[in-house]
Design a protein around this nucleic acid. Structure first.
Lengths: 357, 357
DNA sequence: ATGCTTGGCTGAAAGCATTCAGACTCAGCG
DNA sequence: CGCTGAGTCTGAATGCTTTCAGCCAAGCAT
């Protein structure tokens, strides 16, 4: 492969001039510029990103650390980031942590030696990250945290409006007439779980509905967790008439548990998920869900990172994306109400005894 | 960040010795070795992968080019490759082509300047790749092609046994008593589609069943395609009693179309998908499918690539992974048979007139 | 005409690790 | 005791690009 020196010889100019033509770092008069370009085209020369990175102290690489690409929420995030990276001449290196802080650290350490311009990270469980991030920033890299934030995160970030999304979903159920509403949250050490729970509680509070402690179940963000917690909920008296699952995987588990108990969704119990993954359209019943755009999450993060690369000192930004409740088949008014009339939407909850099995 | 020179000074040795300790490229006696290691630990020194790559003419990076991470088949492949890469000290850079040959080329060209040790590629539609691959190999990089191969691919590869998988699925339907079996293939310029079709035809041929040309429909690998082609099939006389969809997305579209036509799967028509994605478990009915392991596909590819890096001259390898038919709810004997007895499995097909609407 | 700017270009230095030829040490052998 | 060879270690050269100090010429003001 040709190198810059050869181009310089071919074009009869100095190394510096070739570099300036390539990077636009200085004016070069047309004749020279043309000779350089011709030489480049003639040889198919491409500058070594390694030498370039070595000299400039950063490469056109964006590093991305996520829990697990197999979780159907993350491919969208990755794709959004990759698209933005690609169209700006950057490449994306992808790392999975499995929510393992140790693995996250290994990636964090190893990646830095490639001098990526930026790092987009969805923190693993319990990760602090502040120290690492600070060290990356000192080394000149942009760090953007997305989806969920470590406590005290002070850098750039992109999240969604978790509280508002949960609030909207819960309010929708309430307006439908539900009073016995359970919430299966994600792991409560994660900020997104916390915020969703807060939104849920806020909705119930504004409707003057008491939250039974048993109706709040913490789960992992997967089907197994949703399944187990739903089994629990279904045995309670009174039994909830609606469940807000704090992600779609949990909701899938809930649907499964409901079916296994020979109950029907939405007739016996309504379910709303969170995330709005594609698969919510292919379940039976189709799952209502608080949609968020993983693609936008990733794309916004990449933009933020590149902006930060361009200007180290601009003020820190926190982007908060909107959610959107997508109502599909998995919600209906509670039986007690459906049996009466539809005008009863603002009545108080049916007596618990009725709602129980 | 500390560099090698500083370590050398701290340890009171030469640059070369530090390098040898780091890479095991030469014997270093214990006392020196220890001093070097101590200096490294004291400073937290990590060698610059850029300088290292520049010098060695390759980096510990594996490049991966896939059509689209949003397609639920690919995350598994990526994860498999990333795991193997990670545990060997490599990182994965991920590129999406959207099956666009132009984009594929851009990635191919740009990536090389980072000097990755290997490239794992799922070729886009119509890509040739031989020239590019040759050029990568000349530059010292391992190239592994997976999932589908360009015509005349002569390098390392990992695929699944598409023919056998389709054969098994079709045979299963035949044994169930189906005679009017349709196949919705993927794009037939892709080798995996071709092989699946061949397997399908072979199964019918060995059962002495004629394939109606109309029962072979070529589709894109997505829900829309499966939906459209199924609509077509459902209007045919005789109507097929079973459909082999050459991937799960197509199968999803088929299920949708069947439902829309007020028909029932599997009572009116059986459906078998291909790939065995997770979502086949959450559809209604649960989708039978020819399972393949995307994870293994990716992992095998990464192993192949790393082996090739280690030994440039070992013979080319073609790994072919096994498939496994996973029978779930979406298949049943054809109505005509179900109405009679179950012992009729080897009778000839029911008269077309009966099978039609 | 002289002194200054300014624009355009040059080339050496720097960034960091690997590698190779060569130097040095020491044990073993004649 | 001298020589040889194996075993260690050294440090300069190398890979490629960016950047910065500096040079030259042309243009302008005085």
């Amino acid at each position: 492969m040709a190198n810059m020196k050869k181009i310089a010889e071919l074009a009869g100019v100095s190394l510096g001039t070739v570099s300036h033509v390539l990077n636009g770092t200085a004016r070069v008069r047309e004749p020279l510029r043309k000779r350089v370009m011709d030489a480049i085209h003639a040889t198919g020369y491409q500058p070594s990103q390694l030498a370039r990175g070595l000299r400039r102290d950063k490469t056109n690489i964006l590093a991305m650390i996520i829990p697990d690409i197999l979780n159907p929420f993350f491919p969208g995030v990755v794709r959004g980031a990759e698209d933005v990276a690609f169209s700006n001449g950057y490449r994306l290196v992808l790392c999975n942590t499995d929510n393992d802080h140790g693995k996250e650290m290994m990636h964090l350490n190893a990646l830095r030696t490639y001098l990526p311009s930026g790092l987009i990270v969805i923190p693993s469980d319990f990760s602090d990250l502040s120290a690492q991030a600070e060290s990356w920033r000192r080394a000149g890299a942009a760090v953007v945290c997305i989806d969920r934030l470590p406590r005290n995160w002070s850098g750039d970030s992109v999240t969604i409006n978790n509280g508002a999304g949960a609030y909207e979903a819960a309010s929708y159920l309430i307006n439908l007439g539900h009073r016995d509403i359970a919430c299966i949250t994600g792991p409560l050490h994660l900020t997104n779980s916390q915020d969703r729970l807060k939104g849920f509680k806020r909705a119930l509070r504004s409707a003057k509905i008491d939250v039974l402690p048993g109706f709040l179940q913490e789960s992992s963000f997967d089907r197994a967790g949703g399944y187990a917690k739903t089994k629990l909920l279904l045995r309670m008296v009174p039994r909830p008439t609606a469940i807000l699952a704090c992600n779609d995987m949990i909701a899938l588990g809930a649907l499964l548990a409901i079916r296994e108990e020979k109950l029907h969704c939405p007739e016996d119990i309504s379910v709303v998920g969170f995330d709005g993954l594609d698969l919510t359209e292919t379940t039976t019943p189709q799952l209502s869900s608080v949609y968020q755009s993983p693609y936008q999450l990733g794309a916004a993060a990449a933009h933020l990172a590149l902006d930060r690369v361009a200007d180290k000192n601009s003020p820190v930004r926190h982007i908060i994306l909107k959610t959107e409740l997508r109502v599909r088949e998995s919600v209906a008014p509670p039986k007690s109400l459906a049996a009466r009339s539809t005008s009863a939407q603002t009545t108080v909850a049916a007596p618990p005894a009725l709602a129980a099995t």
